[in-house]
Design a binder for these strands. Structure first.
Length: 946
RNA sequence: GCAGGGGUAGCGAAGUGGUCAAACGCAACAGCCUCAAAAGCUGUUCUCUUAGUGAGUUCGGAGGUUCGAAUCCUCCCCCCUGCACCA
């Protein structure tokens, strides 16, 4: 009687379904266990081997926990919104919904072949209105809380598509559909979620997670917290012309020089015009070293008359906005103001010039640094070429150079950025070092990020390698301010710690301490403060595509942005749309035209849809109560099932889905939509990558793809399952091997063969010992995802079982239970065949009986193995040396060990293939022609072969 | 460059202080079975040596700690993965 795999697979699938074996309900008294695999995108290609591995790993865990007595929630669903369905729609003309539903049906069929023990009642699909309705609901909640907002952002734009592209649609800087068209960066209004509000908690909680270390580190780096100091630098707008009155500029009433004004005139790189009627030598003293122009109007003009200023502006062809003016006389100042000139009526008050210049030239630039201790070494500043305020800094003289540079930077593709040389151009502006009052040139550079910190950095070439390279290239000053180690700042920046030099009153302080001290000093002068920066940016969720959740807001001509009211949800995705150019929603009038919920006036619907990562950020909560029509889920049910005890999926989601989902959980907790659940996934397991037999990633173009269905057809689902997890540890990468699955197939067939011809009887002590040891070790191995080792132990156990005459029914059942995790179909089948009416899938996991584990038996087995090896070796040698064929072998053993060997006669015979006889050494009647009995030692019998 | 994970016999892959020439699988070789092949069963597979012995050299390389190291420490080389000029 043999087994037809296909038959038993169908039989038990039906049986599981009929008995609702894997459907679960909350049961207060029962401990729960939530096993979850990352829900898949249902591609038309169906299941690939990576899926099969992923789900097998999860299913083994789910079956194990279920048998251990847990109330196991093990659901499946589909991440069914997204780009490929829309692409297919454009290409094949098939509606995304139809395409997706077909793909899901196919996925489900294939998954059921694999013997996965899902609770299918809980299935979810993110493209269902019943699901995405709640996306919209959550969005409104976020909006209410200020966690969703709209802001201008850079997006990928294709001219030919007339549309925004997702990052995935940009290939090598070109549009995926127009390979001749460079993707442009455009500034558009987009929706964001304020994930940065949670940056700190997301970071701190990482350490509490039982996740693979590398994922935790990836998340930490992604969030990227750094402590530093924000320092305010002043930079002048150099395009404004500075007008200064000359009559009273030199001294005040008491004859004191206005030193502050003088400093600023020196520092401001702007064009300076001194208005005067009668040039005096005094001017030269006051304006010493300052580049200025003298301007005199003829006919003794009256500076108190507004006409005067209009004439001045006209003369230089300037508008009132193009200049600022310093005037010491009140009446004159008022006149200048009356023609619209930004004028300071200066009165020698401390700080008045500074305040005025700050306001007039809009020139405060806060920069972020982790090394405020090096502030005395700042010799230039660098602003990002992508900075929106860049051109405020550029002077007329430098404009063409900067523009040229700007274009060059813009044309550089993402992939090239890595090997870029540091390059830049002088903007023409200068900044003022707040501690030294030194004048520092401001450059624009290609190595400064616009969206980190303030987009401008203070450059300390002596102590930062990037700044150093830049300084060397453009011959900028390098000023050493930290001494430490054998630093030689002519060759390389010294980035380590040390003692401050050339740093005024901070000299000889340790650099670490100086970070504190200088920050404190800046703080006291209101020039800076401690700051924490994150690399994490707010999450842009707007997508200009059809196949996603519509963002539930309208734009009213009167009221502006108005959220759709909750009672009107869902905003349904219209079925009838035209695919082609751009976002099909934008051209769908029925969809776009809406009533304003507030004023009932005309309004346009938002046509952007949500990033699909929004869908996957809470699906694990929906599984807890997936058919709830009134709420996203019942809070109590979520409280029962959450958090997920074991999450399983690929490492590629480390910084996207896994951060978003954590963020969502925290927000929903704070909105009191769920209880006090801080983290969604306690434990995470990353499966390894399964490569083709050539060692490369499986891909159609390489032709190394192995389809799970083909393997199931050829071998069976059980064989595929046990193969997938027995080659290597499930978290390490490995390559598919045809020979490997062949080997596993032999093993499974041996088991089938054995159970077809099984003879029940009392299990030997040897079997019992081995069985209970295996139970103990396999339990531990499964617990720790060492599936490969568990299979080895199962094989070794089977070897012992097979070598013995009888097996008890109970032990046969125990063996099948161990097997059932890996090979559920044949386990069910034989469980049934040996007379059980229950499902093995719902049986109790066997308990190891320590008392039955007998290490002595194992020790004897080892000794017998050794003797077998020795006998075979001798047989081989006498054949080679003496050309004699051995027929019989005699063992001479210590009397105390006689039983050990005599009990194993059959085994020895079988494995040496000759007759064997055992004598105790003290046996007077023993046959021992060569006196080999003398050689006998404990655990090592003497051997004679003839 | 930084961070993380690795480098183990022909290959895949266990093993983290002695019981290790190192599980298990594959491959190869030999024997049994068979008319024969496949399958199945049994054995062998670092080197030399040998009636089961003994000796030597191994776990990326070089040093070190230890009575004792694949396993601990230091330095170096190589591979993979992630981040990438984050100030």
């Amino acid at each position: 009687m043999t087994i037809t795999f296909k038959k038993i697979e169908q039989k038990w699938q039906l049986e599981w379904e009929r008995k609702k074996a894997f459907e679960v309900k909350e049961a207060r008294g029962k401990k729960k266990f939530y096993v979850l695999e990352m829900y898949p995108y249902p591609s038309a290609g169906g299941l690939h081997m990576g899926h099969a591995l992923n789900y097998t790993i999860g299913d083994i865990q789910a079956r194990f926990r279920r048998m251990q007595g847990f109330n196991v929630l093990y659901p499946m669903g589909y991440d069914s919104f997204g780009l490929p369905a829309e692409n297919a729609a454009i290409k094949a003309g098939e509606h995304p919904k139809k395409y997706t539903n077909k793909a899901i049906a196919n996925f489900m069929k294939q998954q059921s072949y694999l013997g996965l023990s899902y609770d299918w009642q809980r299935k979810i699909q993110s493209h269902d209105t019943d699901y995405y309705k709640w996306n919209q609901y959550f969005f409104l909640k976020f909006l209410e809380k200020g966690l969703a907002y709209r802001k201008k952002a850079a997006v990928n734009w294709c001219k030919k598509c007339d549309s925004v592209l997702a990052n995935e649609q940009v290939h090598n800087g070109k549009c995926w559909r127009h390979t001749d068209t460079e993707v442009e960066t455009k500034q558009l209004e987009q929706w964001f979620l304020k994930i940065t509000d949670y940056a700190n908690e997301l970071l701190n909680n990482v350490d509490k997670l039982d996740w693979p270390e590398r994922i935790k580190i990836m998340q930490k780096n992604w969030i990227g917290k750094s402590h530093g100091t924000e320092i305010e630098f002043e930079v002048a707008n150099k395009n404004k012309v500075v007008l200064v009155d000359a009559v009273h500029c030199l001294v005040d009433a008491e004859g004191k020089v206005n030193q502050e004004l003088r400093t600023y005139l020196d520092v401001l790189g702007n064009k300076k015009i001194v208005l005067t009627n009668a040039p005096k030598e005094n001017h030269k003293v006051f304006f010493k070293n300052i580049d200025y122009e003298i301007f005199t109007l003829e006919n003794k003009p009256n500076k108190k008359n507004p006409d005067y200023y209009e004439k001045v502006l006209k003369k230089f062809n300037l508008g009132a906005n193009d200049v600022i003016y310093f005037e010491h006389d009140k009446e004159s100042a008022e006149s200048a103001k009356s023609v619209g000139i930004n004028t300071l009526f200066y009165q020698n008050k401390v700080g008045e010039v500074k305040e005025f210049v700050n306001n007039a030239l809009n020139q405060k630039w806060s920069i972020f640094t982790t090394r405020p201790d090096t502030i005395f070494g700042v010799t230039f500043m660098v602003v990002s070429a992508q900075h929106p305020r860049l051109f405020e800094l550029v002077t007329k003289e430098q404009k063409s150079k900067v523009e040229k540079f700007f274009k060059k930077v813009k044309s550089i593709r993402q992939e090239e950025v890595e090997q870029l040389d540091k390059e830049g151009v002088f903007t023409g502006s200068y900044a003022i070092n707040p501690l030294t009052n030194e004048k520092i040139p401001v450059w624009v550079g290609n190595f400064v990020l616009a969206d980190y910190g303030s987009g401008m950095v203070m450059a300390v070439p002596a102590h930062d390698q990037r700044d150093f390279e830049f300084a060397k290239k453009y011959n900028l000053k390098i000023k050493e301010v930290i001494k430490g180690g054998n630093s030689n700042i002519n060759e390389k920046a010294y980035v380590g710690e040390g003692v401050l030099v050339n740093s005024g009153k901070f000299n000889s302080i340790d650099s670490r301490k100086a970070i504190e001290e200088i920050t404190k000093h800046l703080q006291s002068k209101k020039l800076g403060e401690k700051q924490i920066q994150y690399k994490l940016k707010d999450w842009l969720i707007s997508r200009q595509r059809y196949w996603g959740t519509p963002i539930p807001v309208v734009y009213c001509d009167e009221c502006g942005i108005v959220p759709v009211s909750e009672s009107q949800l869902p905003v349904k995705l219209p079925d009838k749309v035209k695919f082609g150019k751009g976002n099909p929603l934008a051209t769908n009038k029925q969809f776009v035209n809406a009533k304003c919920p507030k004023c009932k006036g005309k309004a346009q619907r938002e046509t952007d849809t949500m990033d699909t990562f929004f869908d996957s950020s809470w699906y694990y909560l929906r599984y807890c109560d997936s058919r709830n029509k009134k709420q996203p889920f019942d809070k109590k049910k979520v409280e029962y099932w959450m958090p997920v005890n074991q999450y399983i999926g690929g490492a590629e989601h480390a910084c996207m889905h896994l951060i978003y989902a954590r963020f969502f959980t925290k927000v929903l907790r704070d909105l009191k939509i769920i209880g006090k659940i801080d983290e969604p996934f306690i434990k995470l397991f990353n499966q390894g990558m399964l490569h083709g037999s050539d060692g490369f990633v499986m891909s159609k173009s390489r032709g190394n793809v192995i389809n799970p269905l083909d393997i199931i057809k050829k071998y069976s689902a059980d064989i595929l399952r046990i193969y997938l997890i027995s080659v290597a540890a499930p978290d390490s990468d490995y390559a598919w091997s045809d020979k490997g699955i062949e080997g596993v197939s032999k093993f499974v067939n041996k088991i089938i063969n054995y159970f077809n011809n099984i003879k029940f009887g009392k299990s030997s002590a040897r079997i019992e010992s081995k069985l209970h040891k295996a139970i103990k070790e396999i339990t531990d191995d499964i617990d720790n995802f060492r599936y490969n080792l568990a299979v080895i132990k199962l094989r070794q156990l089977f070897e012992v079982i097979e070598s013995e005459k009888y097996l008890s029914k109970g032990d046969a059942g125990n063996f099948l239970k161990l097997l059932s995790l890996f090979c559920p179909y044949i386990a069910e089948e034989f469980w049934h065949k040996i007379g059980n009416k229950t499902l093995i899938s719902l049986e109790n996991w066997p308990k190891a009986d320590e008392k039955k584990i007998d290490d002595k038996l194992e020790h004897v087995d080892n000794l017998v193995d050794k003797v077998i090896g020795d006998i075979n070796n001798i047989v081989k040698l006498i054949k080679e040396k003496q050309n004699k064929v051995a027929e019989k072998c005699y063992l001479y053993v210590l009397p105390s060990e006689f039983v050990n060997y005599n009990n194993n006669l059959e085994k020895i015979k079988k494995r040496t293939n000759i007759q064997v006889q055992v004598f105790a050494v003290n046996d007077k009647n023993k046959y021992d022609p060569n006196e080999k009995a003398n050689k006998a030692k404990p655990g090592k019998p003497g051997i004679y072969v003839e």
